[in-house]
Design a protein around this nucleic acid. Structure first.
Length: 800
DNA sequence: AAAGCATGTCATTCT
DNA sequence: GCAGAATGACATGCT
């Protein structure tokens, strides 16, 4: 039985730790590595009882200064601090900003003849030389919903400076679209641009020509005049860069054939770079696997693809694909259970949801300027910044269709889903590494003729934001609870006093750090300061004492042979307030009589009343009487062994004094009396056992608290895990939407391509292919296969 | 009477 | 080196 007992005690602790480990192991680090405290902190934080050395280090920390190093309250303190850090981190949630950059497809400036009548246009599908990437990664909070599209569009216009400038200048002279850029717009551009820099966007992402020309120093204090000059530069087409064209690759020779794409007029600017960016963003871990993963998710998700989510917000989580370590069945089931558990736990926050939705709607109504497929800017309310800017892709047909598309769909997706994806566009090597010369047609066009998916984008009411908010609020409320229960300001200040007391044992401190011992502290300090008035806590269980009245009571008995019942324990030891544990059902069954070390006096039910109404003298008197009246056998029975021994050995002072007196006073007491060796030995044993008894009680209490804290920690981790799983599912959903958009854009571009004779390319024979340098090729499918076998072979194509 | 629990005690280690 | 705290192991008493 003892073995089982031990096994259970240890096993429970180990089990809770294991649960914690398992709980966070799944996906958490993959997604929000920076948001979660390290496992070590999670484990060790709330269970500081196992990190004793930290107690002593706490004095050196600002936050922990007020806590006695030996106090069990440290557990609570650690928990509170951990939770506080979590909430703080939630305040500035560090979710990678999502950026989606699209690129203008424009004609080669050299081949541009006129704006409208292009007999031999070419499509610039490049980012390498002509189009520079602009990273628009402002935090969503910095944007109002109203100006989101405006600012993003402005950036798009600015972005077009280098490569598109000639085209834009001509076209816009005709159409006057960019002429609408006022100085306010320019200022706004600069503000946003500076924000980008402040937010850590690398300089390189801004290295388009005009910026280079402006120089870094000017950027700090750029005035409106400068902005105006820059605007002038745009219109004059300064900083032209060589464009690149779409190249047609001969299917048989493999040579790149300059292709005049007649039907792509001036206005036919395609956003294949959008596709690139979208793809890069969509498949950050490798296109094939991720596509598969997304597909798998969508398939397993079943009708959730197009069907609105239920009120629960999410369908049951499908086995979540993971690029590296797919979840096993058990883990998936656990995930499901965790989400369901979270859904049960989640609290309604309809107000926040409403606000979010409003913001989303605002974003969704952003207009898109003519000829510009711009601005899927992130929602302000979204926790994640989604910057998706399709730079000046001015395709005639697209300009008609895509805006509506993006209005209806992209805004929805952009605003509603805090995604963890980072659609990085600043690193073109990503594209290279991710796609290389890979033909994305196979990925994008499996349902070549199936445009249903394109025209029926899934518009899903998004429960995720609300759920995330809820979970955040849950944690906040948890913190509040913790703060209220365990660590109020007043209590913290009280704890400072305990630092002076070496007897900072706080048995009932697990839930109320300050409650432990006003009396104890005063007693101990008083005992330390005054050697004559032995104002010390009478009983051994220091942590239980809260009765200040009793605390100041002195035991003056001390008569040789006159054993003085330890009346003071009566009130104190009965204090053990069960309400301290009302929050812990585990302890409900523990209704101990903590008067175990009460002497005989406490055994009489009438004593408390008498003592409560008696003065000290009165009590002494009464004790003198009770000492006589109770049956001797009863008294003997109630006394502890040591007390009996002490009485038998005629120890001239009480066991309380023996146990609780400070060393100096204790030795002084011993020196005052002439005691035999046996008496001295007994006294030392009594003191040792008494101290050890208290220590044992504290130790057991600490064990319980540790277990309780671990349980709480496991619950917290489970909730975090469920929340993260929800986020992951939302990301997958967003991924799927993005994929659909990319597919749609691809088809849009491809359908606009014409050969020399003005005929459209056959999708079954040709496909668009991206090369390492960012250009896009129209390649026969047979070539694609070959190239995929020879990835090093670079097609010599004509860029447009 | 056995099981289970709470508590006390001892031995040991650590601070 | 001592005092005391911490803790595992065991003993004891009670229900």
């Amino acid at each position: 039985m003892l073995y089982l007992k031990k096994y259970f005690t240890e096993g429970l602790i180990q089990f809770t730790i294991l649960l914690s480990l398992i709980g966070v192991r799944v996906d958490v680090d993959t997604y929000l590595n920076s948001q979660l405290p390290p496992l070590r902190e999670i484990i060790l934080g709330p269970s500081s009882a196992y990190t004793q050395t930290q107690f002593h280090n706490l004095r050196n920390t600002l936050d922990g200064y007020g806590i006695h190093p030996k106090s069990v309250d440290l557990d609570h303190f650690f928990a509170v601090r951990r939770l506080l850090n979590q909430v703080r981190s939630l305040d500035h949630l560090r979710v990678p900003s999502t950026e989606l950059n699209a690129w203008l497809v424009h004609r080669d400036p050299e081949t541009v003849v006129s704006a409208a009548s292009q007999s031999s246009p070419s499509i610039a599908l490049d980012n390498g030389g002509s189009l520079e990437d602009v990273n628009t990664s402002e935090p969503s909070t910095m944007r109002g919903a109203g100006n989101t599209s405006e600012s993003t569009y402005s950036l798009s216009g600015e972005d077009n400076l280098g490569a598109v400038a000639p085209e834009v200048s001509q076209e816009q002279d005709n159409r006057g679209s960019v002429d609408e850029l006022s100085k306010e717009d320019i200022d706004l551009i600069d503000i946003l641009w500076r924000q980008d820099i402040d937010l850590g966007a690398g300089r390189e992402v801004f290295n388009y020509s005009s910026r280079q020309k402006d120089g870094e120093g000017d950027k700090q204090n750029e005035s409106n005049e400068e902005a105006g000059v820059r605007e002038e530069n745009w219109r004059n087409g300064i900083n032209l860069q060589e464009g690149q064209g779409v190249t047609l690759v001969d299917g048989e020779t493999g040579e790149s054939i300059p292709e005049e794409l007649s039907s792509l007029g001036t206005q036919t600017s395609m956003s294949l770079q959008e596709c690139l960016r979208l793809l890069e963003a969509t498949f950050p871990f490798g296109e094939e696997s991720e596509f598969q993963a997304a597909d798998t998710a969508s398939e397993l998700g079943g009708p959730a693809e197009n069907a609105p989510s239920t009120s629960q917000g999410l369908s049951l989580p499908a086995p979540l694909p993971q690029p590296d370590a797919p979840l096993d069945l058990e883990q998936q089931w656990q995930d499901i259970m965790a989400i369901m558990e979270l859904q049960e736990m989640d609290v309604n926050n309809t107000a926040e949801n409403t606000n979010l939705n409003n913001n989303l709607n605002n974003t969704g109504t952003d207009t898109i300027e003519s000829g510009t497929v711009a601005s899927f800017a992130g929602s302000q309310s979204s926790l994640i910044n989604q910057d998706v800017s399709l730079h000046q892709a001015s395709l005639p047909s697209c300009s008609q269709e895509l805006p509506s598309l993006f209005n209806s769909e992209l805004d929805n997706s952009a605003g509603q889903q805090p995604t963890l994806l980072r659609l990085s566009s600043s690193n073109s090597s990503n594209i290279n590494s991710t796609f290389g010369v890979t033909n994305i047609t196979g990925l994008l066009l499996p349902p070549l003729n199936n445009t249903n998916n394109l025209t029926t984008p899934s518009v899903l009411p998004d429960p995720f934001v609300s759920l995330l908010e809820e979970s955040m609020l849950d944690e906040i409320s948890l913190l509040d609870l913790a703060m209220e229960e365990g660590f109020s300001q007043a209590q913290a200040s009280q704890l400072e006093d305990e630092l002076d007391s070496d007897s900072g044992l706080s048995l009932d401190s697990g839930h109320s750090p300050a409650s432990p011992s006003n009396s104890e502290t005063s007693c101990s300090s008083a005992a330390s300061s005054s050697s004559t008035s032995a104002t010390f806590s009478e009983e051994g269980a220091v942590g239980y004492s809260t009765d200040s009245e009793v605390a100041t009571a002195e035991t003056e008995e001390g008569a040789v042979g006159g054993y003085q019942p330890e009346y003071s324990k009566l009130c104190r030891m009965s204090y053990q307030d069960p309400s301290h544990f009302h929050n812990f059902p585990q302890l409900d069954s523990i209704n101990h009589n903590h008067t175990y070390n009460l002497p005989l006096a406490s055994s009489y039910p009438e004593q408390p009343q008498l003592f409560g109404s008696c003065s000290k003298k009165c009590r002494d008197k009464h004790l003198q009487q009770t000492k006589v009246h109770p049956p001797r056998e009863f008294i003997d029975k109630q006394m502890s062994r040591d007390e009996r021994r002490a009485r038998a050995m005629k120890i001239p002072f009480s066991n309380e004094k023996i146990v609780n007196l400070p060393v100096e006073e204790f030795n002084e007491l011993l020196s005052k009396h002439h005691l035999s060796e046996a008496q001295l030995s007994l006294i030392r044993d009594i003191r040792r056992r008494g101290k050890n008894k208290m220590a044992a009680q504290n130790c057991r209490k600490r064990k319980l608290d540790t277990i309780i804290n671990l349980e709480q920690g496991v619950q917290d981790l489970r909730r975090d895990k469920a929340r993260l799983l929800k986020e992951k599912m939302e990301c997958l959903r967003c991924l799927k939407q993005m994929k659909q958009k990319v597919q749609m854009l691809y088809q849009e571009v491809f359908s606009q391509l014409r050969d020399e004779e003005g005929r459209p390319y056959s999708a079954s024979e040709y496909c668009l292919q991206y090369t390492a340098d960012g250009s896009v090729l129209v390649t026969p499918r047979s070539m694609t296969l070959e190239q995929s076998r020879k990835p090093d072979k670079k097609p010599k194509d004509k860029k447009k």
